[in-house]
């Protein structure tokens, strides 16, 4: 998705290369630019501050720092950050907690490509 010829920049955070590859394969052909990847919450916060992406897709279950902690920290530093949780933990408590801290959407793995795409487009609108 390019606005005024400028591609929207995405940071993918997931400890599984399989999911990072899937998300990339969905978004790149649709005109998004993957500016970075992170495999844990600490890396996610660091790369967010470095790269200032337009949107982050964030896993929850990761070593060192989980995705909810990382999202909380990013949103504390940048309240305008756009974050979508992409997780296998589709529990109501996780969903409520995610929206409470300011996350834009909550996608449960496994997902259809259209679900990721619509979550990203909606969050960037």
């Amino acid at each position: 998705m390019a606005e005024n010829g400028k591609k929207k920049r995405i940071l993918i955070v997931d400890d599984a290369a399989f999911i990072r590859t899937m998300v990339k394969d969905i978004l790149v052909p649709r005109g998004f630019e993957i500016v970075g990847e992170a495999t844990n919450g600490n890396e996610a916060v660091q790369k967010y501050m470095e790269l200032k992406p337009d949107l982050v897709t964030m896993d929850i279950t990761m070593k060192e720092k989980d995705g909810l902690e990382a999202a909380r920290e990013i949103l504390k530093r940048d309240p305008n950050a756009r974050i979508i949780m992409v997780t296998a933990l589709g529990q109501e408590k996780m969903l409520l907690e995610s929206f409470k801290i300011g996350v834009k959407d909550f996608v449960v793995k496994p997902f259809e490509p259209e679900r990721i795409l619509s979550a990203v487009e909606k969050a960037l609108a």
Binding site: D15, A16, T61, M62, K63, T87, A88, L89, G90, Q91, E92, K93, M94, L96, V108, K109, P110
Partner: peptide, 23 residues
């Protein structure tokens, strides 16, 4: 991870309880 995570959502119907999984 996806099977276990999806199963925890089915096992945990409570708003107040957490069920976490390791990598």
């Amino acid at each position: 991870n996806m099977i276990t995570g999806n199963a925890t959502a089915l096992l945990n119907q409570h708003k107040d309880l957490s069920l976490n999984i390791t990598t």
